[in-house]
C-alpha cells in the first residue's frame, strides 16, 4: 500500500460517494501507476474502500482493461474486429508477434511490450487500427507496424 493511495481513495469517494462507484476510478488510477493490479493491490483497494476482497477481485476480473498480471511499458492493442480484419489486421498481429517473439496475450521478457487483441475500437474507417497505451494508431499497414514499436509513450 502506498501512502498516497489513501488520498486517492478519499478523492474517488468524494467524487462518487454512492454505492461502490468509487471503485472503478480508484482501480484505474492505481493501475495507471502500478501497471497492473496484483492480489496485494486488490486487497489494498478493498481495504481502502471498505469492500470485501473477493468482491473487488470479481469486479477486476470482469473488465478486460484491468490487468492481473504484470504488463509491459507499452501495451499494444491490435483490433481484430471485422472491419479491421477486412483491412489486414490479422497480418498486422502476426507481424508483431514475429517481431516481438511473443504470442498475443504475452509480454516480452524485457518488460517492454505487451501484445493484446482488441475488439472493435470504434475507428473502423481507419482500419487496421491499433492502440499503444490506449493512444490510437490508425491505418497501420505492415510497413507502419515497425513504427508502432518505436517512439516515446505516455504510461
Amino acid at each position: 500500500m502506498k501512502p498516497h493511495w489513501e488520498t486517492w481513495a478519499k478523492e474517488a469517494k468524494t467524487e462518487f460517494p454512492k454505492a461502490n462507484s468509487a471503485l472503478l476510478p480508484l482501480l484505474h488510477r492505481i493501475q495507471g501507476e502500478e501497471g497492473y493490479l496484483s492480489s496485494d493491490t486488490i486487497a489494498d483497494v478493498a481495504h481502502l474502500l471498505d469492500l470485501a476482497v473477493p468482491y473487488v477481485e470479481s469486479v477486476v476480473s470482469f473488465y478486460s482493461l484491468f490487468y492481473q498480471r504484470p504488463t509491459g511499458r507499452r501495451i499494444i492493442h491490435v483490433c481484430t474486429g471485422l472491419s479491421c480484419a477486412l483491412g489486414g489486421s490479422d497480418e498486422l498481429m502476426h507481424r508483431l508477434e514475429a517481431k516481438l517473439g511473443i504470442q498475443e496475450g504475452q509480454t516480452t521478457p524485457d518488460g517492454e511490450y505487451t501484445l493484446l487483441e482488441a475488439e472493435c475500437l470504434a475507428a473502423c474507417d481507419k482500419a487496421p487500427v491499433a492502440q499503444v497505451n490506449l493512444r490510437y494508431r490508425e491505418s497501420v499497414d505492415l510497413e507502419a507496424a515497425d513504427e508502432l514499436l518505436k517512439g516515446e509513450v505516455e504510461s
Partner: peptide, 11 residues
C-alpha cells in the same frame, strides 16, 4: 460506451 463493431460515430 460505443463498442458495437462497425460503429464509430460517438467517438
Amino acid at each position: 460506451d460505443e463498442a458495437e463493431p462497425g460503429t464509430f460515430k460517438d467517438r
